[in-house]
């Protein structure tokens, strides 16, 4: 063959390289690559775990913030309810006070009317006593029946006069 090409030697070279390839693969390439892959997987797992924990922390924070917002809303709602209740109570107290005041005024008026009636009655009684006393004094001069008649006449006239004015 030209250039000293020899098929037998080519096959011997091939055999040599196949032996080398098999040996290197088993002794060096495969174990080193296996170690590197395991280490990469370990770090990838660590990275995934860290990302998962970060996501969980983010989720917890969002949940906490949501609950905080809900609590704020609830507090605001309760505050509004309390304010409304207070307003209602104030209104109720005010109405009760007004009613009490009205009843007191009405009672006072009734009492005043009764007092006035009683005063008028007393005054009539006193007037009647005075008249009786004055009549008795007049009887000394005139007869009692005449005096009494004249008194009744005088009282009737006075009553008529009062009724006309009213």
């Amino acid at each position: 063959m030209p250039l000293n090409i020899d098929w037998q030697q080519i096959l011997l070279h091939l055999l040599n390289f196949v032996i080398l390839f098999a040996g290197l693969w088993l002794l060096l390439y495969k174990p080193v690559r296996k170690f590197m892959n395991e280490r990469r997987q370990k770090y990838e797992k660590m990275d995934a775990d860290a990302q998962k924990k970060t996501a969980e922390a983010e989720e917890s924070r969002a949940e906490y913030e949501r609950k905080l917002a809900e609590a704020d809303a609830e507090i605001e709602q309760k505050r509004a309810d309390a304010r409304k209740e207070l307003d209602r109570y104030e209104t109720m107290r005010k109405n009760a006070a007004e009613e009490e005041a009205s009843s007191i005024v009405a009672a006072a008026r009734e009492s005043a009317a009764r007092e006035k009636e009683r005063a008028l009655s007393d005054a009539r009684g006193e007037i009647a006593g005075l008249v009786t006393e004055a009549t008795e004094k007049l009887v000394l001069k005139e007869s009692a029946s005449e005096a009494y008649d004249s008194f009744l006449d005088a009282a009737e006239r006075a009553e008529k006069k009062d009724g006309g004015n009213a």
Binding site: L3, N4, I5, D6, Q9, I10, L11, L12, H13, L14, F17
Partner: peptide, 10 residues
């Protein structure tokens, strides 16, 4: 050696 080069190339 050309035989070695041919074997690896082939």
């Amino acid at each position: 050696d050309i035989n070695g080069a041919i074997s690896l190339g082939c």
